[in-house]
Design a protein around this nucleic acid. Structure first.
Length: 196
DNA sequence: TAGAGGATTGAT
DNA sequence: TCAATCCTCTAC
C-alpha cells in the first residue's frame, strides 16, 4: 500500500495538514494485531497560538517531541485517564501538531471491540481518548516515527473539499481569543465524528 | 515539594 | 452536571 511520506508532515501550514489528513487511513500493529481506521476528525495546534501546549515556544518534558521534525507521534495523558494522539508537523524547532479526534474503523475491528470491551462498533472511535484505546495507542508511542514503525498512515479514500467542515476546537476555553480559531476539521455528515 | 488543573468520557 | 484519575507544570 501507499504509505504517507515523512515529507508530507514537514509542511509549514498545520491547518492544511489537518484538513489533508481527513480520509487518510491510520494503522497500528499491537501484539501482532493490525487495526486501522479512516481519519474523520482532526484539530490543528501551533506554537503560535494559546491553545497549544507549546505556545510561545514553551518547551517542557511533556511536549518536547513537538519540537522535533514532523512525522512522529505526540501522545500524552489527559485528565489522568485518556491518551491523546497527535501527529507532530512542521520542521524541527517549530512545534505544530495535529490532534486526531475521530476515526471510522476499517481493519481489525474485532480487536478494537475487545480492547473497548463492547460488542458494537458504534461510536467506538468517536473521540480522541477512545480511538487511542481502540487502536492500542498509549504513551509508550510518544516520539515514535510514523514512517518506520508499527504506526503509520496510508492514502485511504479521496475526500472532496466540499465534504470538509471547519469549526472551533473542543475543550480549550483557557486559550482566550485563540479558542475562536476554526481549526477543527471533520467530514460532513460522517457518523463517526465525535459528539460533544 | 505541594497543589491545581487538564486538547475527555460516560454515568447521573 | 459531575466524578474518575494521575501526570505535568507552577509556585512556594
Amino acid at each position: 500500500m501507499h504509505q504517507i511520506h515523512k515529507s508530507y508532515f514537514n509542511q509549514k501550514d498545520v491547518t492544511r495538514i489537518a484538513k489533508g489528513l481527513l480520509g487518510k487511513e491510520l494503522f497500528t500493529v499491537v501484539n501482532g494485531h493490525r487495526t486501522s481506521g479512516l481519519i474523520v476528525e482532526t484539530e490543528a495546534y501551533s506554537y503560535r497560538e494559546r491553545g497549544c501546549h507549546a505556545f510561545n515556544n514553551k518547551l517542557t518534558e511533556r511536549n518536547k517531541v513537538m519540537f522535533e521534525e514532523g512525522g512522529i507521534a505526540y501522545v500524552y495523558l489527559c485528565y489522568g485517564i485518556h491518551n491523546l494522539f497527535n501527529i507532530v508537523t512542521n520542521e524541527k524547532g517549530k512545534a505544530d501538531a495535529v490532534l486526531i479526534r475521530a476515526l471510522q474503523p476499517r481493519l481489525g475491528t474485532v480487536h478494537m471491540l475487545k480492547r473497548m470491551k463492547v460488542d458494537k462498533l458504534k461510536r467506538i472511535t468517536s473521540g480522541p481518548g477512545k480511538l487511542t484505546k481502540a487502536m492500542g495507542i498509549d504513551r509508550k508511542w510518544n516520539g515514535v516515527s510514523l514512517t518506520n514503525s508499527d504506526l503509520w498512515i496510508e492514502e485511504g479514500v479521496k475526500v472532496q473539499s466540499t465534504q470538509i467542515m471547519a469549526a472551533t476546537r473542543i475543550g480549550i476555553d483557557y486559550a482566550g481569543q485563540d479558542a475562536m480559531l476554526p481549526w477543527r476539521f471533520y467530514l460532513k455528515d460522517n457518523e463517526w465524528v465525535s459528539k460533544w
